[in-house]
Design a protein around this nucleic acid. Structure first.
Lengths: 339, 339
DNA sequence: CTGTTAGCGCCTTCAG
DNA sequence: CTGAAGGCGCTAACAG
């Protein structure tokens, strides 16, 4: 049995108001069928006592929790170090709050944690789930759809109609950055991309090559896959820049990579952007602290969070028809590329 | 009524196993009083069907949610831009996960949101609450204690025995940084501090002055309060550095302030650290990207999160005695100060 | 060791 | 327009 608590129940309010619990319930849920006078009397008592319906009881009765789960594919402590997840989390939080949903945060960096999330879902702790950066073939996603849990993916596109998703124009951004370098007369372009299993990286690659295709015939280009951190960027740039046929433009798939490239250029005495243009992705907080400041791509994180929540709630409430959305990115021009 | 769902209940499992619901319940909660054979048979069926007890029902019955709320005093989207909150959130999340608690995230940047959190608490959505950076006189904290909600503060010390708290040695760090500059022969020290309503800033100030007190008599020093961002740091440093009696050491209350100081020094052609030593606080991600790299103070965020969760769970479960903890900071020596 | 019996607090038909 | 009653799924006393 539940331990005693001084909390009031709907029955207490009912007897205080001289009505039945049902009437109080109807009143609190704004349902029709309560006289104006009665309603006001009840509402007064409710606010006098600061009464709040017990959420567990309500959940048990309605089958809805009014909570959405946000599942990150990393340790929480890793999530927060990521260039975009924290802001995305913030956006999701704000959007949820506006929609009057609470959020629960989960992380899965190991199989047991997948189970934990599924337990939470199976235990009906959440009405739906949003997954930043999970592939549609992710085992968690599979099981979620098997369990008919409303699910929205962020940063991954899929044909599966039971899944909602939101992504942004990584391809366009990469293409535009590349075209700009080309327009500045660059003839030897390299893309330092992240691993292809990251959906965003595949799109960025596509954009890069799309731009290259339209380039003059004397342009040479190359795509190299590296880890998405500064050390890898530095190492790759070192090799490239000291080799024959050194690039005069490097499009990087992340600011971290780009900062490594900048380090290498500085060590080699290469002038950025005069001799070498460099661009990043993410608009990380440190992008304004590098020397020179990094030209980069800003994701529409706020809009992404809002869109994801909108889609998810529509799925939960069985309304809405659209199941996905693609949002535009913004290029932030700074000092590491020519104007 | 709850809508139909294909989910199994404890009764289904019970009849499948040929026992009563009570026995299944005891089994699933590892309570004594179930025969070994029966227990195993039930467990097999449970796992076969992937059965999970409905959390709402369990909550209603036990009065416990196994969820803790984390309340930030900002918009979620602001929280994530903060130098330490995201990592703190991560640490809390990891600690909660280890302790088998789920976390719910709330933010209060306006009075209505205070109500929202209280509703959540009153609706018993959480068993306890941790508040990063809330003062003990904060209205939310007052109401939380009135409602007897187990509460732990982070970064704020209080004498109120009903509150738990965790903080770290901001004072020691500031003192040590100051002493080091003194030891390097600095004679004109300035502390660029944040507003005094921030508990950490008060402690940092205390440490600074404690170190100054032990200094030689020809040392002059000053504390100036600025906003905790780069622009304010830059402006203050500009004034200081171009004035008479320019400082040769500046202890800043945040990396953001310090990066502004670095900018000013560079513009003025002042050599850091030779002519001017500069230190920050927080070990923000950009601190390794500044030129020169910033000497700063790293907070024990992981330990703080773990300690806060430990304290909170002890309060929730009515065990434990200690109600607070002070953790040590670490100074990260980099290029903006002399070795 | 196991079954039975009451609730936990709310929502929701069904009467009146 | 309002009251009464049953049920959501689980836990916890109490019998046996």
């Amino acid at each position: 049995m539940a331990q005693r608590s001084g909390r009031l129940t709907i029955h207490d309010i009912a007897s205080l108001a001289g009505v039945s619990a049902g009437t109080v319930s109807r009143t609190m849920n704004n349902l029709p069928g309560v006289g104006q006078a009665t309603r006001e009397r009840i509402l007064a008592i409710v606010s006098d006592h600061g009464f709040k319906a017990d959420s567990a009881a309500r959940q048990l009765s309605t089958g809805r929790t009014h909570t959405i789960g946000i599942v990150f594919p990393l340790q929480v402590s890793e999530v927060v170090m990521h260039p975009v997840y924290p802001e995305l989390l913030g956006a999701l939080g704000d959007a949820a709050q506006t929609a009057d949903y609470d959020i629960m945060m989960f992380t899965v960096s190991s199989p047991e944690q997948v189970e934990h999330v599924l337990d939470a879902v199976d235990g009906k702790r959440v009405d739906g789930v949003v997954l930043p950066a999970a592939g549609s073939r992710d085992p968690l996603v599979r099981r979620l759809t098997e369990h008919d849990v409303p699910t929205v993916l962020i940063g991954h596109r899929t044909r599966d109609q039971t899944l909602g998703w939101v992504d942004c124009t990584h391809d366009d951004a990469a293409a535009q950055l590349t075209r700009e370098m080309l327009a500045h007369g660059r003839r030897r372009l390299v893309m330092l991309n992240g691993p292809a299993h990251v959906s965003a990286c595949r799109l960025r690659s596509r954009g890069f090559w799309a731009a290259i295709e339209t380039a003059a015939s004397n342009v040479t280009s190359e795509e190299i896959v590296v880890e998405m951190d500064a050390a890898s960027g530095r190492a790759a740039a070192m090799a490239l820049l000291t080799g024959s046929d050194a690039p005069d433009g490097i499009v990087c798939a992340s600011d971290a990579i780009a900062s490594g490239v900048l380090d290498a250029a500085r060590e080699l005495g290469i002038d950025v952007p005069a001799q070498l243009e460099v661009s990043g992705f993410d608009d990380s907080s440190f992008a304004i602290h590098t020397t020179p400041q990094l030209t980069t791509v800003r994701m529409p994180l706020l809009e992404t969070g809002a869109a994801a929540m909108r889609l998810l709630i529509a799925m939960i409430e069985g309304s809405g028809t659209s199941r996905h959305e693609i949002l535009p990115t913004t290029i932030v021009h700074r000092e590491s590329t020519l104007p």
